[in-house]
Computed example of a mutant assay.
Amino acid sequence: MAFVVGENCINCKHTSCVEVCPVNCFYEGPNFLVINPDECIDCEECVPACPIGAIYSEDDLPEDQEHFLDINAELSDIWPQITEVKEALPDADKWDGIEGKLNYLER
């Protein structure tokens, strides 16, 4: 089992999860973070650290977000690893809770 970054991270990209990850399994794209499922040790530290509730256990991933399992795996092989906290995107508060953001994902 691994943890998965879901849709709500798109256009928000808070990095408080990165700060608590003991194995640095987060990878950064232009407007989204992903978790490398092969590196995640299932410690759960990232879940409460995410201020917008965008991280799920693979077993608890909402059915309408199951495609994010593949998205996290695919993009963590392409994007650079992130190990430091950065500012959230400028309009993060505006995007929190908006549904249907997948079409805004910048690869």
Rank of each mutant, 00 (worst) to 15 (best):
F68Y: 14
Q81T: 13
A49E: 03
C9W: 04
G97V: 11
G53P: 10
P30R: 15
V47Y: 05
G29W: 01
E106A: 12
D42V: 07
I55G: 01
I82T: 13
V20P: 01
C21T: 03
L105C: 03
I55L: 10
L33N: 00
A92Y: 05
G53S: 12
P37N: 08
C21W: 05
N11W: 02
A2V: 06
A73V: 07
I10S: 01
P51G: 10
I55A: 03
T15F: 05
E74H: 12
C9N: 14
I71T: 10
S57C: 07
C12T: 15
S16R: 14
E66V: 11
M1K: 13
C12G: 11
V34N: 08
E44R: 14
G97K: 05
I71Y: 01
K86H: 11
A92W: 15
A2S: 14
A92G: 02
A49L: 06
L105E: 08
C12P: 02
E84T: 14
K86W: 02
N24I: 04
A73W: 09
F32T: 01
I78D: 04
L102T: 13
I82N: 06
A2I: 03
I35G: 00
D93Q: 12
D93K: 15
C50W: 08
P62I: 07
E58K: 13
G53W: 09
L69M: 14
H67P: 06
Y104R: 15
D93S: 12
H67L: 11
D96M: 11
S57R: 15
E44H: 11
L89W: 00
D91N: 13
T83R: 13
E39K: 15
